[in-house]
Amino acid sequence: MFTDLHVHSLHSSGADTPGFLRRLARSLGVELCLCDGVVHEGIASGVEVHATTKRELLSELRRNWRRFDYLLVHGGNMEINRCAVRDSRVDALLHPYAGRRDCGVDTVVARAAAESGVAVGVELEDLILARGMERVRVLAHFREILRLSRKYGFRVLATSGARCRYSLRSLREAEALLACCGFEREEALRALTQVPREILERKVRLRRELSRGVRFAEG
């Protein structure tokens, strides 16, 4: 099942209520997680951190990371990209290519992401809404991120980035769109299903810990 970690509802910048999106997502076979910066009952809730400086990013991470099921960082600025992938509180760095000519992932970011386990996110909405040369650039960025992920072994996360009902995509559609950027079937399925599940399970595991590395013995 496609677990979509980046969907906005009416509570942030979206156009539909969480209940509406949830029912629609269920009919599409998508597990919905809302990234509104609000805790929704019964739905995995996350936050997308927007920061312009490293200091601001760290302060946002400190403030938010225990409150939400997962934490995404809006990339684009190289300083933010590097800082985000080095911090294990971050679950994924989203669209590191935003507003850039390159894909926003260099060898430093790629190595750090592979070591810390922070996923690098690509957004289907960026591909769908772009036109002409802008779409060409987005496709090239997706390909470059995939190529570096094959080389350095960091995880790639794919999300819809939906702000309305017409942006939600089923697993089949998402897989077809990723195939346009060179994703093999297994790679696409991993980015759409396995990586988001790992992100959600990681937070559950961390919450059981008393402090870093110390947890209650089970049984």
Partner: peptide, 9 residues
């Protein structure tokens, strides 16, 4: 968002 309506249950 190029929409007319809000979706709700």
């Amino acid at each position: 968002l190029k929409l007319r309506f809000v979706g709700a249950l």
